[in-house]
Design a protein around this nucleic acid. Sequence first.
RNA 1: GGGGCCGUAGCUCAAUCGGUUAGAGCAGCCGACUCAUAAUCGGUUGGUUGUGGGUUCAAGUCCCGCCGGCCCUACCA
Length: 704
Amino acid sequence: MAAETDPPNADLSAPARRILVTSALPYANGPIHLGHLVEYLQTDIWVRFQRMRGQRVLYMCADDTHGTAVMLSARRAGVTEEAFVAQVREEHLADFDQFGVEFDHYGSTNSDANRTLCERVWGALTAAGRVEERTVAQLYDPAEGTFLADRFVKGTCPKCGAAEQLGDSCEVCGAAFEPTDLIDPVSTLSGATPEVREAPHLFVTIEPLHDFLREFVSGSPDGGAGAVPPEVANYLKGQFLGDPSDPKELRDWDVSRPAAYFGFEIPGHPGQYWFVWFDAPIGYAASTLEWCETHGENFEDWWAADASSELHHFIGRDITYFHCLFWPAMLKTAGMKLPDQIHVHGFLTVDGAKMSKRRGTFIRAAKYAEHLDPSYLRYYFATKLTPRWDDFDLNLGDFADRVDADLVNTVVNLASRTARFAKPTGLSETYPDDGGLFAAGAAKSERLASLYEAGDFAAVTREVLALAAAANKYVEDAEPWAMKKDPAKAEELQDVCTVALNLFRQAAVYLAPVLPELAAKTEALLNCECSSWEAAQAPLTGTPVSKFKHMLTRVDRAKVSQMVEESKAEHAEAEAADAPAATGGKDYIAEEALEPECTIDDFLKVDLRVAEVLESEAVEGADKLLKLKLGLGGGHTRQVFAGMKKVYTPESLLGRKVICCANLKPRKMRFGVSEGMVLAAGAGEPDIYILAADDGAQPGMRVH
RNA sequence: GGGGCCGUAGCUCAAUCGGUUAGAGCAGCCGACUCAUAAUCGGUUGGUUGUGGGUUCAAGUCCCGCCGGCCCUACCA
């Protein structure tokens, strides 16, 4: 946990800011994975930066423990919910620890502090007349004894008849409906047939706060800044708030769930529990309350409406709605501190695609740390993080290249190529002429600080790397290795190393929020302090240099692949364990219903031929398309575009015999005309399996 | 169905308010060097800025259509 004492303030004339920072609470129903880490690392970097600048920061987080999913997981595991979330908590904390994410306090939404604050907020909502009770009809699972959220019900679409559709919409025809409309609904929890039951629910009205919320997100007319970036404000206006001239009505929010539900029972409403999304954000405050109680601080100094502190939330863009509308509405009504800024980040993709368990790119934090140095990931994420909510990609090849090239070859190289020369003498007593390099780096201080402040870590790493690159050039030009051979140039050698090591240290200080371990190793090497921002302002002189030890090893590509392979294997095991035995596998016919009966004449209209893939290339600018030239014998060829690039590489198809529909009407596509279709099984990526003919089949033969 | 965001070199990203010939790193190629973790330094190849229109003296940037991706949301719009 972070030090409580205030570090020296960067700007001695200004009092330190008091900043309360949160990351969204991870749900206590699963492990932390690389997608989660985007947010915790982003927040941790920002927090560490603020601390280096002398600000007073509280970094608060907690496990989000309530809800149906946790309740069911606990049942399945045969333990109480409390025992279940306690176990998950240990795992989460271990993961955060490995990645250097340092919270001041990590609470739980299932705590007395949270219950107390939920009651306080609830009391305020009730007193303000914002709470209404209404009856809601919902599907109920008699076997599990719980009401079912939409995603826990499957059934046949009432509109198109497609089977196995989830409770709220149909993937096949796109229809939207209520789960109670489903034909033959089945609980995915127990397999039981759910019954429709009515239960009272409590709703919170936020429409009266419409004007307040508009001002909150986009700023006040008198020039006050909004709490969210412009694109987020646009989204909220477009989706929920509308224009002042054409406002949309904000819907009431259903904040209760009937028993059985793992959560807090609502005072005065026996059998009704606060919905997990109601108590989750209150967990930010509850965590602070617990911290205050053990640190002799006053909770109101951080959470009262007029508290002089700042409140910053870091969230993913999927939960923008809750944090930017409901949450401020709750706080406003409860007379509590409003967020000053909500930092919204995008999602992580891996190798250009959504994280996929099947492909092994759904990687747990713990699995990553088994194989690779967490510093790599902290750095790589930093090179990608901006204040915008764009998604960004963890390209595993690029990841390894980038870490090696930037950190090992450029930054650490500065130390490793000169520390040995400097060890016998230490650093020079006075800082030598370096052509202005150190001063130029020092002059970057405020610019880099404002980039950190704005969350533009990508720009920070770019600029610091440019400094380190210039430093390498300095060493190259000075040729210390030549001086080493000439005893008369010992002083000159010491000077060159003094410059190189100071430039290295400057970079390490600037990168310290991202790479705290590198900063610590730099402190050990140079016997100095690297934990304050001002450390980059003045060069170090006359100090001893320790024996150089490797600070960061190159990325082992084999470990990267191993990590992916093992993640893949984990998924396969989990699937095998989940699959009910001897049910004959997945019901693909239910998933994609049979077409109406056809006659032999209908079938013969489709002319299927054996074809050989003569040419195969990926289509530039298309993610899914391969352009194939098919040989049908006798000199006949066809150009066919096939949407299977994500599953088959172009080379893997060359020379293969495939089955194609040879009389399909040619279709003009963006990249050319497609004159047929290659047959493959499966509903689409990643399930695409090309049909093949047995040996002996020749191109052009018809399939009967 | 509605909305938001995104699309720039093989890869990852820059480009102030619309302003010169769209830049950088990595990878590739050529050369130099050898202190350093096959590191470093110099040079160099590589772009119809997804696509088609429009506005403008000037468009990667602004407007409209289309294609593609991600997300949110919805029997309202």
